[in-house]
């Protein structure tokens, strides 16, 4: 037993080094902007750039729009599939895997070819970018919601609500959504993290998003991009931490015997 314990710690330690060392080096490097001194100058420069806030703001806005639309699309769809069309589940799941099958570059060019010409002319609108983001979010959103739906007895809960006179709107908003809160949130934070760092769509559609901004800065400056990538990393972490906090499990205490 003792031996296994030591090995477990060693492996954990190696894993931690693998994970943290690049982060520490990035931090170390980003602090060397001023010669022979450790300072947060690079962070100061990054945060005083007006463009940074503008781009960051755009990305947050688009991420929120993506999340809203994606949730409104995925939750009712997944719910309907569970309740009425369980046979269609593999097909829907396959469709949601599209961003893993079709590379983002191909998707974007497809978008441009289809929507940047008559009768659409949508290439100037952020809707095209958001549509792309929704597709990117599908595998995460669908899987999260799907898992959440499996954990509750969708069919019986729906029937119970129906027999109490509830309509579809009430069932979705008062029974299904609240019981999927944690599942939806995990999809939401993943989507947020993906959209904030996304490069291909934004760059090819020439949208002023945060991803291309990081890339532009990276090609022009040495220290600020390191600071920025740390910031975006912390942002992702914060999202996941928030998720853990909101989704912290209720204690499942069954009152045994006390009927």
């Amino acid at each position: 037993m003792k031996k296994i314990n030591i090995w477990a710690w060693i492996i954990l330690f190696i894993g931690m080094i693998y994970f943290f060392l690049p982060l520490i080096s990035t931090l170390e490097f980003s602090m060397k902007m001023i010669k022979d001194r450790y300072t947060f100058e690079a962070f100061r420069v990054a945060f005083t750039d007006r463009v940074f806030f503008e781009r960051f703001g755009y990305s947050v806005l688009w991420a929120l729009l993506t999340i809203t639309l994606s949730t409104l699309l995925v939750v009712p769809t997944a719910y309907w599939v569970h309740w009425k069309l369980p046979k269609a589940r593999p097909f829907v799941e396959f469709v949601t895997l599209m961003p893993f099958v079709v590379p983002a570059v191909v998707l974007t060019f497809g978008f441009i070819r289809l929507y940047a010409r008559p009768p659409f002319f949508l290439n100037d609108r952020p809707i095209l970018l958001i549509a792309g983001y929704i597709i990117l979010s599908l595998p995460y959103m669908f899987r999260a919601v799907d898992t959440g739906l499996r954990a509750i007895d969708v069919r019986t809960l729906t029937e119970a609500a129906l027999s109490l006179g509830a309509g579809w709107g009430t069932i979705l908003t008062q029974v299904i959504f609240p019981n999927l809160r944690v599942a939806i949130l995990s999809g939401v934070f993943l989507t947020f993290a993906i959209v904030m760092g996304e490069f291909t769509f934004a760059s090819l559609l020439a949208k002023p998003a945060f991803g291309p901004y990081m890339e532009e800065i990276g090609s022009m400056r040495a220290y600020t991009p390191q600071a920025l990538s740390l910031v975006s990393f912390l942002l992702t972490w914060a999202s996941i931490g928030l998720l853990q906090w909101i989704g912290r499990g209720r204690v499942q205490e069954q009152v045994a015997g006390a009927h």
Binding site: I152, D153, T156, E159, A160, S163, L164, V175, P178, N179
Partner: peptide, 12 residues
């Protein structure tokens, strides 16, 4: 009114 085998109370 309906009562189900699995209770079907709304967990939330």
């Amino acid at each position: 009114g309906m009562v189900f085998q699995s209770y079907a109370l709304f967990p939330n």
